[in-house]
């Protein structure tokens, strides 16, 4: 194979990846453990439709956010890959 790989900034790529991962895990923690377990009693004072909000996060909301998190991660990783010259 003759084509020399384009300039890859592996260090920059990795630190951007780690930063993104940490911020997404904060959201992951907030919607499940945060809203669904630790802050449930507070959130339950509010309703979404006919369900207490904390209960809803534990049984429905967290799952929707999980799905969104993974697809956002794919989107953001593609951008990071382009920026640092990485071919995914």
């Amino acid at each position: 194979m003759s084509n020399e790989p384009t300039k890859i900034d592996a260090k920059g790529y990795w630190s951007a990846t780690v930063r993104l991962t940490i911020s997404l895990l904060v959201i992951w923690f907030a919607v499940s453990y945060g809203a669904g377990v630790l802050l449930r009693d507070v959130l339950d004072n509010v309703s979404i439709g006919g369900a207490p909000l904390g209960f809803w996060f534990a049984q429905q909301g967290s799952i929707y956010v999980f799905v969104a998190l993974i697809f956002y991660y794919c989107f953001a990783m593609n951008k990071i890959e382009r920026k640092y010259g990485v071919k995914g």
């Binding site: 991962t21 997404l24 895990l25 992951w28 669904g36 534990a58 049984q59 967290s62 999980f66 991660y73």
Partner: peptide, 21 residues
């Protein structure tokens, strides 16, 4: 009831860890 949430969050939230880590 609410106690069943551990299965719902536990068995889906793991996929976020899998995808990211």
């Amino acid at each position: 009831g609410y106690g069943g949430s551990v299965y719902l969050m536990g068995w889906t939230g793991g996929y976020v860890l899998l995808a990211l880590l």
